[in-house]
Design a binder for these strands. Structure first.
Length: 635
RNA sequence: GCCGGUGUAGCUCAAUUGGCAGAGCAACUGACUUGUAAUCAGUAGGUUGCGGGUUCGAGUCCCAUCACCGGCUCCA
């Protein structure tokens, strides 16, 4: 009896049972067999030498297949481990998976790895790939597996085997003198590996828990083609060049000093960006029917006990005492918002009530977690709490989705959304969770938005929608979030008077658009590489004189621009025009106006645009008209 | 917090085995009056993150401390 093998293109071929994937590939074409890294039988990625015993869908995975990269990198992780074993024989092995940008392997070694070791290990990896050792799979019993790794003193592997489920197929892979517990699959041999680079060494707790021993992790990256590795390394360089910490200092936007770790300083130019963002935020929120409030940064212990923060969020909070009473610095704005809601009697006619707050919160983050403006200990949330009737949930969520969409589009961000559902330890009944999750889902579907579901990833008080925006380097950042909260209205006994004259509990959502203003500015700085669009640019126009003779006219031009509300600077120094242009360009000023004798005579200006160069002569008023239009449209 | 690395002028970086702390850019002064990405010359700039120790002598070696960088989420 022969097998029916259905290929990717839909064609069906017949083979004898027991034929291996690679043999089928060879039968299709010799080139395919040569480029093959793995196979995919009925959707499952497998080794090339896997025998096929039943009618199947088969796909040959080559270096060009999307599934190839993980198999490829995972194989290199094994080779890395083998190289380390050769060079540092006392090393015990943890785990070594493929990850988003490469792979890693965790080691427990008496030797402390140094950056110099990476070059040595790379060399050894190269020797192993040159040797073209086959990866061999062997399935073993649990007892056999335990014996193999116990004999080698591989206590981490032993722990992993013991925790495998009862019915697990336990497999080991060997290449040459190296053997590892592994589900596979792998590339057929070490010779398939090209373009590997070890990136860094880091500490990592065994199984990610700080209760466990810290192992040494070696990170690397690899691509099937050298060119792809070079592209990746170039992108890393580009990200480094755009680092907001570097640009923030160079352009004098913001900084973090030793005196306040995690507490950012904003300089005058950074404040311009910040204020523009906040103005924009206020305009959009006003249009969307929000009111603005401001609640105190310090509030008393009772409030935080009532909200549950005192019990559940204490590690992240800062405390103080005033007149011998305990107070806490707010890590979130919601409790203050609750008090504002409660400050007056609310009718169903008042709902939905949308209250926004640019609220400065403080959170004690671990010192090792701090990172520029992206992870700080004090930041401003562009918060808002919407109180509403249960029947208003869907429309309100749609309103927030539209608001977020409108705001992100202005910056040219693409984004995707994720819906997180009820976690293990959640508060509230299943019914209310279902209703809330359905409301979120319906809102997304009403907007025709594709979304990813994160089962069980919601907050303990309610489900949420997260917005992940993508910057110009393809990196994603979680910024906006919409969370339904059933706990706060309960805890603060919020109510409104309904049509029936009775008290009812309102539903609340908690949402942010930017997330944190500081972080958003960090993201924008990297997204634009410091070349902010004109409406955000700290200095929008710099007027450059060619000689002293044109200074007077240049001052007139500056004055006109100032009167039009433009942020303008004059560079009237005795320097060559090329020098002044260079400086303005380095400072990323969007518009440079060159003013010399010709312009003074004709009442014009010579326009130079950042990134585009000389644009020729233009009448002053015409330039101002165009400029104001661009600023207004946030182009 | 934990692991590893780093810390020298405002910035980017030098300084041989422990042996006189230096350069470029920026700043300041002067000359040059300049047409689309760096004019020339000069001057000044430092308790080498902070605190101890070893040594005749420490930027360099040791200890402690602070800050920063990378990582600690991707599960054989």
């Amino acid at each position: 009896m022969s097998l029916q093998i259905t290929l990717k293109d839909g064609s069906v071929r017949e083979y004898q049972p027991g034929i291996s994937v690679v043999e089928i590939a060879a039968d299709i074409s010799r080139g395919l067999a040569k480029n093959a890294l793995a196979g995919k039988i009925n959707g499952k990625v497998v080794d090339l030498n896997t025998p096929v015993n039943e009618n199947s869908q088969l796909e040959i995975i080559t270096v060009d297949s999307p599934e190839a990269l993980d198999v490829y990198r995972h194989s290199i992780a094994h080779i890395l481990a083998q190289a380390v074993q050769h060079l540092f024989p006392d090393t015990k092995f943890g785990i070594g998976p493929a990850i988003k940008d490469g792979f890693y392997y965790d080691f427990d070694s008496g030797h402390t790895f140094t950056p110099d070791d990476l070059a040595k290990i790379e060399k050894e990896i190269e020797a192993i790939t040159k040797a073209d050792l086959p990866f061999e799979r062997r399935e073993v019993s649990r007892e056999e597996a335990l014996k193999i790794f116990r004999e080698r003193g591989e206590l981490y592997k032993e722990e992993l085997i013991n925790e495998l489920p009862e019915d697990a197929v336990i497999s080991i892979y060997c290449q040459g003198d190296f053997l590892d517990l592994c589900a596979g699959p792998h590339v057929p041999s070490t010779g398939k590996i090209k373009a590997v680079k070890l990136m860094s060494i880091a500490g990592a707790y065994w199984r990610g828990s700080e209760k466990n021993k810290m192992l040494q992790r070696i990170y690397g990256t690899a691509f099937p083609k050298k060119g792809e590795l070079d592209d990746y390394l170039f992108r890393l360089e580009e990200a480094k060049r755009r680092d907001h910490r570097k640009i923030g200092a160079e352009l004098q936007l913001f900084t973090i000093m030793d005196e306040g770790p995690g507490f950012p300083f904003f300089f005058p130019k950074g404040m311009v960006i910040r204020n523009e963002l906040e103005n924009f935020w206020r305009e959009e929120h006003k249009k969307a029917g929000y009111q603005e409030i401001k609640t105190p940064i310090i509030l008393n212990r009772q409030l935080w006990e009532r909200s549950g923060h005192w019990q559940h969020y204490k590690e992240n909070m800062y405390f103080t005492d005033i007149d011998e009473e305990d107070f806490a610095v707010k890590p979130m704005n919601c409790p203050g918002g609750m008090l504002v809601y409660r400050s007056d009697l609310r009718s169903y006619r008042d709902l939905p009530l949308r209250m926004g707050e640019l609220g400065l919160v403080h959170r004690h983050e671990l010192s090792g977690a701090l990172h520029g403006l992206m992870r700080v200990r004090a930041f401003t949330q562009d918060d808002a709490h919407i109180f509403m009737l249960p029947s208003q949930i869907k429309d309100e969520i749609i309103g927030v989705i539209e608001l977020i969409d409108r705001i992100y589009k202005v910056f040219g961000f693409e984004y995707h959304v994720e819906l997180s559902t009820k976690p293990e330890k959640a508060m509230g009944s299943d019914e209310i969770w279902d209703m809330a999750t359905d409301a979120l889902r319906e809102a997304l579907e009403a907007k025709d938005m594709p979304y990813i579901v994160n089962e069980g990833d919601g907050a303990f008080y309610g489900p949420k929608i997260d917005f992940h925006l993508m910057d110009c380097l393809g990196r994603t950042w979680q910024c906006g979030t919409i969370q339904l909260d059933f706990q706060m209205p309960e805890k603060f006994e919020l109510n409104y008077v309904g049509e029936d004259g009775q008290k009812h509990r309102p539903v609340m959502i908690h949402r942010v658009v930017f997330g944190s203003i500081e972080r958003f500015i960090g993201i924008l700085t990297e997204h634009y590489a410091g070349a902010f669009p004109t409406w955000l640019a700290p200095v929008q126009v710099r007027v450059l004189t060619v000689t002293d003779r044109s200074k007077e006219y240049a001052q007139e031009v500056v004055k006109k621009l100032e009167q039009a509300g433009v942020r303008v600077e004059l560079d009237g120094r005795n320097e060559k025009i090329g020098y002044k242009i260079r400086e303005a360009q380095v400072q990323k000023v969007p518009y440079m106006l060159v003013i010399g004798d010709k312009e003074a005579e004709t009442g014009t200006l010579a326009l130079r645009k950042r990134g585009e160069g000389d644009k020729g002569a233009l009448a002053v008023d015409e330039f101002i008209r165009q400029l104001l239009e661009e600023i207004r449209d946030k182009g």
